[in-house]
Simulated scan of single mutants.
Amino acid sequence: MIERIIDKRTHDLGGGLTVGRVLPFHARRMVGPFVFFDHMGPVDFAPGIPRSLDVRPHPHIGLSTVTYLYDGALTHRDSLGFHQEIRPGEVNWMVAGSGITHSERLEYARAHGAHMHGIQAWVALPVEDEETDPAFYHHEGTDLPMWDEGGIRGRLIAGAAEGMKAAVKVHSPLFYMHWEMQADAARTLPSEYKERAVYVAAGTVEVAGQKLVAGQMAVLQPGLAVPTLALEAATVMALGGEPIGERFMLWNFVSSSKDRLEQAAEDWRQQRMKLPDGDDQEFIPLPDK
């Protein structure tokens, strides 16, 4: 039932902020349209943390970013003019399309201190939508279907699953769910999508009889309903969708075309991409190859 288990790898975002990177993995680049999956924290920040820990302005093309927090808060600003605080249980869904820049600042933590814990994922856009106009959406409350049963409190973050549908605008068939599981709670993930994965953000679970600890993702075989049992209280993300074809990545850019990646990189080098409104005094330079 499990095709592969992927362990998160420590990755430095620059400025001292580290994350656990799960996707892309050398032997498994994507799960459905999910092409990137970073686990931030859990980490405690004291008031007065330096601005070097912030994710400074940077660009994207060819994807949608989805920021989801369990704890803490982030301040989003982008080149479309949106300024949005994101808090636990809310969704920031940013469509990069033909090009957008944004920053995610730790302003709440800097002022008050915070326990930070969350996931940043990227969803690759279908070929026909890779150059769509950029857009930004914030969702909370009834936009994101919730349920509470059998010791599990769940939320559908995006897409459609099990007869539910989130209000987030997606461009291809997918699902993305958050489960808070009490010890001994069990749930079966249906086989309605070709590619699926289960990620353990906290605690310990058993997936198809195999033990997974925090920081591990189980990529599931297609066509089978897969049981998940919480061996202790656990935070679990279930995700996947229909495959959309091969994608190439260059830094923060995703595309079906390598030439398009090089064009985006040159646009950033030459400072041809507008920086976020209200946050245009610094940016992350393109890394050396």
Rank of each mutant, 00 (worst) to 15 (best):
L220T: 06
M94H: 11
S98I: 11
V168A: 07
E180C: 06
D129M: 11
H11M: 15
V91L: 09
I100R: 02
R105I: 12
L229H: 14
P285M: 01
Y108T: 10
Q281D: 14
G203S: 06
M217H: 07
A111F: 03
G203T: 04
P59T: 03
Q84I: 07
H58F: 05
Q84A: 13
T142I: 12
R187F: 13
L189C: 05
G72W: 02
V95N: 10
T10W: 05
S172M: 12
K211C: 12
R4T: 10
G32K: 00
R260L: 10
G245T: 10
A166Y: 07
E3S: 15
P285Q: 00
R9I: 13
Y108I: 04
M181F: 08
K258V: 11
L17D: 05
D71G: 02
M146H: 09
A109G: 15
P57D: 08
G14R: 06
I49H: 04
R51F: 10
G97L: 04
E130W: 02
H112Y: 12
S256Q: 11
R56A: 09
K194I: 02
L106V: 14
R110Q: 07
D12Q: 08
P222Y: 00
A109D: 10
L224S: 14
G20P: 13
V198L: 06
P285H: 04
R21V: 14
A214Y: 14
L69W: 06
K194C: 02
G159M: 04
G163P: 03
Y70R: 10
M237F: 13
H58L: 01
T18P: 03
Y137S: 14
W251V: 09
E195I: 07
P57T: 10
D280C: 11
A27K: 15
T228L: 13
V22K: 06
L23K: 09
T75V: 14
L239M: 10
S64M: 13
G151C: 02
V200S: 06
G81M: 04
K274N: 08
V127W: 09
G48N: 04
F36S: 12
A158R: 03
V200N: 02
F37L: 15
V236S: 03
A264S: 03
L23H: 11
T101D: 07
